[in-house]
């Protein structure tokens, strides 16, 4: 037992204060269907009537003069507070847009671009790209 004591102390230092956290904002963005949108044909009014307008929150998408953006924000955090009496915090977090839908409109109010991407934090993949060139 005495020989194992330092290992137990070490383990207590490192395991106590281990935290794994996940933050997700707007998971429902995954369920939005944009397959019916046709650039050059579909109008902003039709997008609003069928999908609605995206929520506007700083850094998380929203409405601008010529675009709508819906985002699913995903953040993973790992924290370790290791120590006794003096406890430094080691923390690493990564946040990304797990799902990102961008719909752009031209001056006439018709859709000019639909761009939809998914990301796992390391790689990005386009799941939909429809463009109407001028």
């Amino acid at each position: 037992m005495v020989r194992r004591l330092p290992i137990i102390i070490l383990a207590a230092f490192f395991l106590d204060g281990c935290k794994i956290a996940r933050d997700q904002v707007n998971i429902h963005v995954r369920d939005i269907d944009t397959s019916w949108i046709e650039p050059g044909v579909t109008t902003r009014r039709q997008v609003i009537d069928r999908i609605g307008m995206p929520p506007t929150a700083k850094g998380l998408g929203g409405v601008t003069a010529d675009a709508f953006r819906w985002t699913l924000y995903d953040k993973r955090t790992g924290t370790l507070e290791a120590g006794y009496i003096v406890t430094p915090t080691f923390e690493l977090s990564r946040a990304h847009f797990a799902e990102d839908i961008l719909v752009r409109f031209d001056e006439s109010g018709k859709v000019s671009l639909v761009s939809r991407t998914v990301s796992d934090g390391k790689n990005v993949r386009i799941t939909e790209w429809k463009e109407c060139r001028k």
């Binding site: 395991l15 281990c18 935290k19 997700q24 506007t56 409405v63």
Partner: peptide, 28 residues
């Protein structure tokens, strides 16, 4: 625009490790 949001934080704090998840919905 009138924006509002709701967040639910849920966690399981065990002796050795803590697990937490936070889910937020924002709407305007």
């Amino acid at each position: 625009g009138y924006t509002y949001s709701d967040t639910k934080n849920n966690g399981l704090m065990l002796i050795a490790v803590n697990f937490m998840r936070s889910t937020t919905v924002t709407d305007t």
